[in-house]
Design a protein around this nucleic acid. Structure first.
Lengths: 230, 230
DNA sequence: TGTTGTGAACGCTTTCACAGCT
DNA sequence: AGCTGTGAAAGCGTTCACAACA
């Protein structure tokens, strides 16, 4: 049985679309109307051919000899990424990181309002952190339904993270952003994205060490193409 | 002139080493002494051949017919990543995220103590947040020297981030972890790693949308191989 | 003329499959 | 017998280079 297959855009290209989008927002803010693949490439720090190929996956929205229109292309990228609507977010884990993210402007401004924060610690439940009251994780199912939440962000300790995932899955959440440094087990129907802040530093450490070993004379620092692995 | 070239490990493999390391730590905590590539592959959610190839870049540290030793391999990965020592960290930007990261256990526990936090806002300078007093960003050069800091973490607003980078570079920092959603310009001798939390959600949004469009019947969620681009 | 869109070449990464050790 | 280490093959992603077109 053939799956209704959406036009398939390569993963690597999908991962760059948000970056282009951000640059287009900046261009729009400075009243730029059009841009060429060369210009966007320079701003994004990539090759112009890559930009053209990435944008071509969206459709043929450029004009030969002229370039691309900022507003039109912004619209197309947002459509592709599913950003034509807002997605409500719940933060699980009301520690320092969780509270910081609940207030984090970068979520709301990109269309991801944090509408709830929960914890399992009775001492934290009921506290208020910037207009949100910490809820009980055992109410998650109701909260997700009532607040129409689509995405869960896990900021618990490592040891509590598996329980947090289970609660989110049980509540019907299918997209999870995980900050706990653990490989979580989930049904394959759930999308998980891990952001391990410790790992980010460890990768920097690798290059910092290389700088020591090679005598740090080199003008070009080695650079990892910003890939976390699965 | 030929550069003193270190044994080159592919970027993709480097990005996976921290994940293996974390799993090895878990194994050690449960008193496991040995493991096979199959076992590690299952825990990391990757192919066994990939595990063997990745580990082979470190040297031939396994035993045919037996497997790998947890402690020995842990040592080798740490050596390769430059984790045999601690790297002191300074956080630039004493907002919610900056303060949360300054307290964040996941940094210290992996050998990255946050030894200083600075800001440019007079209202924040002098405040204390978990044993650290917020310093003045204009003192950065002295702080970096006195505290022997190797890595800078930027948690300022987007608009202040370029100034933060400049201050770090001026202070002699060559490794930067940036949380501001901006493409920063730095000398090529500096390693920068961007973590854009908004982008992480935008990529999840893409898959959440696909689930809607395809009728969400599919048992297997699409999954991006956790690559940020750059 | 200037810039897009894209086959084709290239290079990096993953996977296969099995020889080589223990 | 079992598992590692690794050439070789396959698969992806990037870059080149140029035809197509405004």
């Amino acid at each position: 049985m053939t799956q209704l297959q959406r036009r398939k855009i390569p993963d690597a290209a999908i991962a760059r679309l948000p970056i282009y989008l951000q640059i287009l927002n900046n261009l729009a803010a400075t009243n730029v109307l059009r841009f060429s693949s060369d210009e966007l490439a320079a701003l994004a720090g990539v090759n112009a051919a890559k930009v053209r190929k990435d944008l071509s996956y969206l459709g043929s929205y450029g004009t030969r000899g002229v370039g691309y229109e900022v507003t039109y292309l912004t619209h197309q990228i947002k459509r592709e990424l599913g950003l034509m609507r807002e997605w409500n977010v719940v933060v699980v884990g009301a520690g320092n990181l969780g509270c910081a993210l609940a207030k984090f402007d970068g979520f709301l401004s990109r269309g991801f309002p944090v509408v709830a924060i929960v914890d399992n610690d009775p001492k934290k439940i009921g506290r208020t952190t910037s207009s949100l009251t910490v809820g009980d994780v055992s109410d998650l199912k109701n909260i997700v339904r009532d607040e129409k939440i689509s995405i869960g962000v896990i900021t618990t300790s490592s040891s509590a993270s598996q329980a947090a995932v289970d609660a989110l899955v049980e509540a019907g959440i299918t997209s999870i952003l995980n900050f706990a440094p653990v490989v979580l087990s989930t049904p394959s129907s759930v999308s998980v994205r891990n952001v391990d802040l410790g790992v980010e530093l460890q990768i920097l450490s690798y290059f910092e060490q290389m700088r020591f070993e090679t005598g740090s004379k080199s003008e070009n620092a080695p650079q990892l193409n910003s890939a976390g692995a699965r």
